[in-house]
Design a protein around this nucleic acid. Sequence first.
DNA 1: ATCCTCATGCGACGGATGTCGCATCTATGT
DNA 2: ACATAGATGCGACATCCGTCGCATGAGGAT
Lengths: 129, 129
Amino acid sequence: MVKPSDFELKLLRHLWQRGRLSARELHDASAAETRWSYSATRKTLERMVEKGLVRIEAFHGLNTYAASQSKIETLAVLASAFARDVLDLDAPLPAAAFAGSKLVSPGEIAELEALLEQLSDAAKGEDKV
Amino acid sequence: MVKPSDFELKLLRHLWQRGRLSARELHDASAAETRWSYSATRKTLERMVEKGLVRIEAFHGLNTYAASQSKIETLAVLASAFARDVLDLDAPLPAAAFAGSKLVSPGEIAELEALLEQLSDAAKGEDKV
DNA sequence: ATCCTCATGCGACGGATGTCGCATCTATGT
DNA sequence: ACATAGATGCGACATCCGTCGCATGAGGAT
């Protein structure tokens, strides 16, 4: 699972919400936040494809892009990095941390928690070696 | 207030805990985690001085370094960036998020919350303009 | 006076990322 | 057939950061 940068995350959010988009559509949707030129949006998108964050698919010559890593997976990577690097926590972040976010429904929070625990267990395993 | 990178944070932790240290002392204390050469530690330290994260002071020719941004301030920047960029939260992170961390005492959590609220209010102000 | 050790200043390289422009190709209107 | 608009591939530059090495210099040991 890949950890996106802050800007990459902004693009991902639109893709999660709206599914598959062309570069132009994604740019129009996100330009207000990023304040990027169309070129900048496209280049970032291109790199996200290389990294495996986004899947590209052409329809009759028009490239379209869709997230290839789910919102929950992505939040899990980000949250566990925060817990480990910043808070120096062993256990995963408690669900309460996500409670106020409009990004995740209660059902998704449950899913997230499961993933987080998995990640933190995996980390412990590596430690021992 | 400056947002440190993950590695810079590792160095800062030692400075918060032990106060002023020489480059050598800091390196010996942190090399296990960073797995860096002495040169790498020094260079990072040098850049942290430029950024204003650390204050340098020479005693009879020996350089010593101390954190110039407190633990709580730093956690506040990091936590509010996480809340804003990742969780897309308007309000600051709830105290519950920090509860399990050995880095902060209950008293410090209170201090943190105050700071976080300040930061989130400031952000709203800028938004409106 | 000579040598060794350690600190210091500073340069360098590579990868990630933010940012942008240009040359080319393709479909479409006239 | 030709011009125009938009999409695409790709190159480029700057900055940050992880990482390291070298040359110089100062203080102590012989």
